[in-house]
Nucleic acid binder design. Structure first.
Lengths: 198, 198, 198, 198
DNA sequence: CATGAATGAGACTTCATTCAT
DNA sequence: GATGAATGAAGTCTCATTCAT
């Protein structure tokens, strides 16, 4: 790694987190050793400790980064046509490498074991719900969705469907089938939005 | 533990698996040590090896048992009133301890790391789909569901919603809210069943 | 195993020692577990402790028995024709199973670790030397061997050759080649017996 | 231990192998624990694994090194006066510490249990035979040994005698008596070399 | 900055031995 | 006499972490 590059430290941390994220997902947090991660980047274990206090912090930063990525992605949703918007969101997810696409599910496996991860995952979740809810509120404002619908409830359910389909993909469900299921599901929710009240 | 009891060995294995299942879920497979498991039961590490060849086999047997439990539970579904049936299934899940209720999600976290677990999870998944599909087929026969619906596709989506809601519960979603979301979701799928074709 | 047989205990011990001897040789003393030995005979570990205080005593008894066997075999040597006698002794060794034929070499590997085994091996060795020496003395008396020969020295050297050839056999030397080497060696010793003085 | 020394790694491995060799011989391979070996050198267990993949590889490398040492030693034999040469070889062996002098016998105890050790021991053995045979062939060329002698057969027998005497030394035979026996034995073989044909 | 050497705690696993039945 | 259950000590090995260079 070069030395005098401005922002070099940031770059180094990103490189490390990228490797770590993949290996954590592929091997599991415990099973992926600091050595594994270092080897992938071409440095020695000791180096990792120049950038992250310990393995747990590395995990935390990886989760934070990946959850933020998802949030940014959601932030780009428009309310113009929510179905189209959802479909395009899902399509963009399909382009992600596995460790990013399935990061939420991975993180969920860690929340029982790690308070900090639990906290950040909960906060992110809350943010996702808010973002989607506000889009739905806009639709209600435009009269495109039944006023009876509880936007939070609807968001929660959409997210649940989304996550459940991701789980199925981890078990081998094809991308096309997944897309179609997601579309059909979301559409059915929208057309029955009045069922989702509190 | 008593000694020459008939079926004693089976009982001992069950006791171990029960503890293991819980600790695997709570701490993670790697993080839960054989010592932890043994201590919970009140025996020493060595004893576990009288009943299971090694830790991996213990994991496998736990998965097998828990996935079978879910399958049995699904097997009791009737097609008389599928919505009611689904609700009652979900209610019964709420009575389960966390490690059983969320076992599928736990198992999913292990499939990248363990071929045998992957295999049995896939097979179970396939069985779940078949069971639900056949109930839906019966409904189609009775004309209660649109003939256009692809029963497999519909099952997959219901399962996805179910799993997604479980994920949300792991993050703190309340039981009542979860139940209502599940009911609303399933109902919307059924009323829009024609959207689920292949 | 039957219960009321007279001398039953002795028989049982022999059965155990036979298995133990073989497994000790094939797997090594440490590597052969009490379980292995028990399984071979078709009993459980616990049973072995009815007949031998512990594993170390079992080893000791096995050594004692096998070394005694060798001594008995040597005792049958006649001085009529010492070369023929030696050849026939060697031939009879070839009929033994490996764990008996090579027992001395095996035992030697244990003497660093076990005082009791060391002691009995040394005593046996001394006996072997005495037996052979006395045969040689008889020959000297008959004038068939140079009076200058030191019978003890000659015995020691013959034994060394014998053991060295056994070592070679453990490494794959064929039985016929071994026999021929043994014969040629002994003959050359006898014809140069005057070289072996003290 | 110093750090960035050139060839430091090689030195460290040698230190470890030296300790391991001695303890393997004194206590037996199984009975000598990695902890024992580490303690002797003044490091911790973990350190050993920086240099050797596992205990079995450590054993293998020790055997390889020691057998090579013997081969080098044999390589220095000259044919000028084979008896003198043999005596000087034996004398040099007497200076070795036990674990090196008796290494062959130790290794033999492991061949039943370890394929890799078996292989390298067999190969070394073959090399020893070749080296000695070629010296004998030179003697035959010079007419110092009967042309009828089979040089391989003669070598095998000399080696056997040598090893047998070493075995006796392990049981307490004195160095001087051993030397004299070796000399007398070899001399008798040479003077009766025509007895060793194939 | 980076490394390579070392550590030490802790994990899994084996096995001789004991003992109630 | 025999067993099956249990123990606990000990052994191999891994790995996060530290630190001198």
């Amino acid at each position: 790694m070069p030395k005098v590059v401005q922002g070099y430290r940031k770059q180094a941390m990103d490189t490390i987190m990228e490797s770590a994220s993949r290996l954590f997902f592929e091997l599991g947090y415990q099973e992926a050793s600091m050595e594994d991660i270092a080897r992938e980047i071409g440095v020695t274990k000791g180096t990792l400790y120049l950038y992250f206090k310990n393995k747990e912090e590395l995990l935390y930063e990886v989760c934070k980064k990946n959850l933020k990525l998802l949030e940014d992605s959601l932030g780009k949703l428009t309310s113009a046509d929510i179905l189209e918007s959802a479909k395009s969101f899902f399509r963009s997810e399909l382009d992600l490498p596995d460790h990013l696409r399935f990061h939420w599910i991975f993180a969920l496996g860690e929340i029982n074991k790690n308070q900090k991860v639990r906290k950040i995952l909960m906060e992110s979740y809350e943010n996702y719900v808010k973002i989607i809810s506000s889009r739905i509120e806009e639709l209600k404002g435009k009269g495109l969705i039944s006023g009876e619908a509880n936007s939070r409830r609807l968001s929660l359910t959409m997210i649940a469907l989304h996550n459940g389909i991701l789980m199925s993909m981890m078990q081998g469900l094809s991308e096309t089938e997944a897309s179609e299921m997601f579309e059909a599901g979301i559409r059915s929710f929208l057309e029955n939005s009045d069922k989702f009240r509190k």
